[in-house]
Nucleic acid binder design. Structure first.
Lengths: 185, 185
DNA sequence: ACCTGAACACCGTTCAAGT
DNA sequence: ACCTGAACACCGTTCAAGT
């Protein structure tokens, strides 16, 4: 069977990636090492390389699966301003949960480049509602995504008092909404 | 004298930090190591610790001096929209020169927390011109800084064709300008 | 197929010793 | 005051060997 000497069951990719994400959540990017991950899984460090090419591929795996699983607001028919705010809140919630992952994603945007991801589809839908013309959707969604990601990362590191953070978020989202309305005009 | 065995002159903090920044520019954060830096300076790795507490302190030094030296547009009396665009361009230019440094700064905002930095003073001045009320300056400048930093970092990693990048920048700055005008209303 | 230990080439940093 | 070499506790990863 060649199952690990120290544990009963064989490793799974799922198990590897959730544990790795936990390590990143707890200790930042530098909190995740192949050796610590192996220790957390009670396995020899080298076993990991049978499931993953290398550390970079592992982090990419974490990021892309987490991005795919992000809970995003469905189209509930409400005005685009409300839907945009809800999307911003979803980003914010996720960034608070996985700050290191978001920082990594921000530095490696190619990981979520695929426009078929729910993340982009949701943004496209809202931008269409806001009146952004079709040929500008790619550009506008890129800009908005960069803005919101930039904001939630900064917010996460800022350790502001909670009510300040809420007012900051409000300012950010209002600025975007007013800006979009202006662009669409 | 106790000058280095391999080189003539004693190390200076200036020399250390400019060489370190060059290494970061060339190879990202992971391109800068205490040992590579020492090699580039033709010095024993341990000599560095006589000028700098540790690697983190070194990077903080690089970032804060570079932030202080950033060339920002002076108040030339032009409309705030033009001045904001000029400031955005200055950010963008700097981010293209030092992408790794900006990523690090984005993840460690406390390094440039001091509101007396020209960076913040310039932003405050433009926001006042735009009609943002005094008690909202801190919040609005934080949001805007996060947006623009988020954007220029994303832009830097995106390797878009140049003319696409220019149109992206234009969309970003217009969105901010329209948004600010809306907020001030 | 999956796991493992030893080994290699790197890190950051401490410490005691040199001038 | 400034520099240095040896050493320690970490990394990621390769490779040959085990079941």
């Amino acid at each position: 069977m060649a199952v690990s000497a120290r544990r009963g069951a064989p490793l799974t990719l799922e198990e590897i990636s959730t544990t790795a994400l936990r390590l990143m959540d707890e200790g930042g990017v530098e909190g995740l090492s192949m050796r610590k991950l192996a220790a957390a899984l009670d396995v020899n460090p080298m076993s990991l390389y049978h499931h993953v090419d290398n550390k970079e591929a592992l982090i990419r795996l974490i990021c892309s699966t987490a991005a795919q699983r992000m809970e995003l607001p469905p189209d509930d028919g409400s005005p685009w301003r409300d839907q945009l705010r809800a999307l911003g809140l979803a980003y914010h919630r996720n960034a608070v949960e996985h700050p290191a992952m978001w920082s990594y994603l921000h530095d490696h945007p190619e990981i979520i480049a695929d426009r078929k991801l729910v993340l982009w589809q949701t943004l496209y839908r809202i931008l269409r509602l806001a009146g952004i013309p079709e040929p500008e959707l790619r550009r506008t969604s890129d800009v908005l995504h960069a803005f919101v990601t930039g904001f939630v990362i900064a917010e996460t590191k800022g350790h502001l008092p909670v009510d300040e953070a809420e007012r900051d978020f409000d300012t950010a989202i209002r600025l975007i909404i007013e800006g979009l309305a202006g662009l669409a005009r």
